[in-house]
């Protein structure tokens, strides 16, 4: 199986006033094509930091990251990120131009070609009706849909998502999770997804990479490729959820929900 991402013995330090602080310690993983790897752990486990280093925003202190066999040295459109923040859509561009922009600057598409691709991608996430609107008129859920469409349209080697649904209300979050899964089934993209929600991790991921906090170290991994939306709320799903909770937070049942 060819791996799209290979992270080898990754350690990342943050500079603070009191000297460097280790955020990620000796973490290794690979992501195969069409796989959905979820980095899961409590806050402070360095999961977002790992994602940012795959994106090329942060340089690891030691170890390296290969994407399609090439070492990551800087940010690039082969690794597009969906952020948690709603202001990731550029407010001065219409929804369609937000999606078309990376196609033009990073993929060298002509204006008309980029617009057509953007419209197709927006139709896929159910935003065909608002393509000419500016982002500030959209709801939070619609903004995150547009951001997903923007990343999908450029067909990157890998999609990186940094808690994209964390700021949404529960109902919208549920809908977007299911829609993301449907898109993944259809398009078979490769995804690295960061979350602190255990249920979201089981639902979205095909494999979970559990991290402990301060510093972020690998605890274990779980194969969840057989569990999807259909199993949500089933005894099997709940048992796995409970097992992961115990693994992350010790043996105190229900201590940290």
């Amino acid at each position: 199986m060819s791996s799209v991402i290979e992270a080898r013995r990754l350690s990342i330090d943050y500079d603070t006033e009191h000297g460097p602080v280790r955020a990620v310690d000796n973490v290794s993983f690979t992501v195969a094509r069409s796989e959905r790897l979820v980095l899961l752990g409590p806050s402070g486990c360095g999961k977002s930091t790992i994602l940012k280093s795959i994106a090329g925003f942060i340089r690891p202190s030691s170890g390296d990251i290969l994407v399609e066999g090439r070492a990551v040295t800087k940010p690039g459109p082969d690794r597009l990120v969906v952020f948690q923040e709603f202001d990731q859509l550029l407010p001065w561009k219409t929804v369609r131009d937000n999606v078309a922009f990376p196609l033009k600057v990073a993929r060298g598409k002509s204006g008309a070609e980029a617009r057509a691709l953007a419209e197709a991608a927006l139709a896929k996430v159910g935003l065909a009706r608002v393509i000419k609107d500016y982002p500030h008129t959209l709801s939070g859920g619609m903004k995150q849909r547009a951001a997903i469409a923007r990343a999908l349209a450029a067909s990157p080697e890998v999609l990186l998502m940094d808690e994209p649904f964390a700021a949404l209300d529960a109902l919208t979050r549920g809908t977007l999770q299911h829609d993301l899964l449907a898109l993944a089934e259809e398009l078979q993209f490769t995804l690295v997804f960061v979350t602190h929600s255990i249920d979201e991790a089981i639902l979205i991921g095909t494999r979970l990479h559990l991290l402990s906090a301060h510093p972020g170290r690998t605890i274990t991994t779980f194969d969840t490729s057989g569990i999807g939306a259909a199993q949500l709320g089933s005894p099997q799903f709940r048992a796995l959820s409970e097992e992961i909770r115990h693994t992350l937070f010790g043996r105190r049942s229900g201590a940290a929900a």
Binding site: T137, G141, H178, D179
Partner: peptide
Amino acid sequence: MTDHIAEAPIAATGSSARR
């Protein structure tokens, strides 16, 4: 996507009302 029917009309009314 399944919920665009639920989400889209709200936003459409919102933006035209604002205009």
